[in-house]
């Protein structure tokens, strides 16, 4: 157990190795909370000393920014930067690619410069350093990874989640539209919080159908919004019994018997 709230670390006069920025969707959505549980168990297994902000964490401002409200974005961003700087945070890992992009690329101009990792990148680093050992027993279950736009296309990270899934002995499949030509789940740019414009089809249905055509046992995601959209898509197709939508961290934790 090497996880504490940041104010507990501060009270003990210590600093954690890394701040885990949970992100609203992971912290507040009942299903997505399991991502945080799985991820922190992996951190514990690797002996990482981590901190969380708890009630001091708030939205990075990303949904407001993408929806055109730069005021609200900057208001939240400045407040978060004040919090992070007060704890003298240097390194951040987050389970949300939208938080990841905002913290990494958009906070520096506002006075918040940190080393920022997406959790799949950080887990891959722990594996490379030998701190996190993945099971070598064969599993071979078919899994397809859905690239989050803000991790893949937006920030060029395609390998980390794939290497982790392969190292966890799963049979990794590729969707016809994958990596830099992956198809969005339909949640980005504020879409998560509004009704879609009139059209023939919902984007998450289009994407889920493409993934289900590969007949995977699991759909792996790296974003809580993708998780919601694709889970809905799988339900829409009536395949929620056959196909599980899981975060990469959940799959790894499960393979290691941590959950």
């Amino acid at each position: 157990m090497a996880g504490k709230l940041m104010n507990a670390w501060a009270a003990a006069g210590e600093k954690p190795d890394i701040l885990y920025w949970v992100g609203c969707a992971v912290a507040l959505d009942d299903r997505a909370q399991r991502i945080a549980r799985a991820f922190t168990k992996l951190l514990d297994a690797a002996g990482v000393r981590w901190g969380v902000l708890g009630t001091d964490e708030s939205c990075t401002g990303d949904p407001a920014k993408r929806a055109g409200n730069d005021f609200l974005f900057q208001l939240l961003a400045h407040q978060n930067i004040q919090t992070l700087n007060a704890y003298e945070v240097k390194e951040i890992v987050t389970t949300c690619p939208h938080c990841f992009n905002t913290l990494k690329n958009e906070y520096p101009q506002l006075g918040g410069t940190y080393i920022v990792w997406h959790h799949t990148q950080y887990l891959y680093k722990l594996v490379k350093e030998g701190k996190l050992r993945l099971p070598d027993t064969a599993n071979g279950e078919a899994v397809v990874f859905h690239d989050p736009c803000y991790l893949g296309r937006g920030n060029g990270e395609y390998e980390a989640p794939r290497v982790l899934l392969r190292k966890a002995q799963l049979h990794l499949q590729e969707a016809p539209r994958s990596r830099d030509f992956s198809l969005c789940c339909g949640a980005g740019g504020g879409q998560m919080f509004k009704e879609p414009e009139p059209g023939r089809k919902d984007i998450n249905i289009e994407r889920t159908e493409e993934l289900l055509a590969l007949a995977p046992k699991r759909i792996a995601v790296g974003c809580p919004f993708c998780m919601t959209m694709l889970t809905d898509g799988v339900k829409h197709a009536g395949q929620q019994k056959e196909v599980r939508v899981q975060d990469v961290a959940e799959i790894l934790a499960e393979r290691l018997g941590l959950v």
Binding site: M1, G3, K4, L5, V22, C24, A25, V26, A27, L28, Q33, R34, A36, R37, T40, K41, V52, G54, T55, E57, S58, C59, G61, P63, A64, A67, N69, L72, L75, L76, G190, M192, F193, K194
Partner: peptide, 28 residues
């Protein structure tokens, strides 16, 4: 969405205490 973010610091109208929920039995 904007109102929620302003009032609750999150896209949803949920209290910030809920951010501690997932940590039960994880954080000491």
């Amino acid at each position: 969405l904007f109102v929620n973010m302003e009032n609750n610091g999150s896209p949803w109208a949920l209290p910030s205490e809920k951010r501690l929920q997932w940590m039960e039995n994880i954080i000491t």
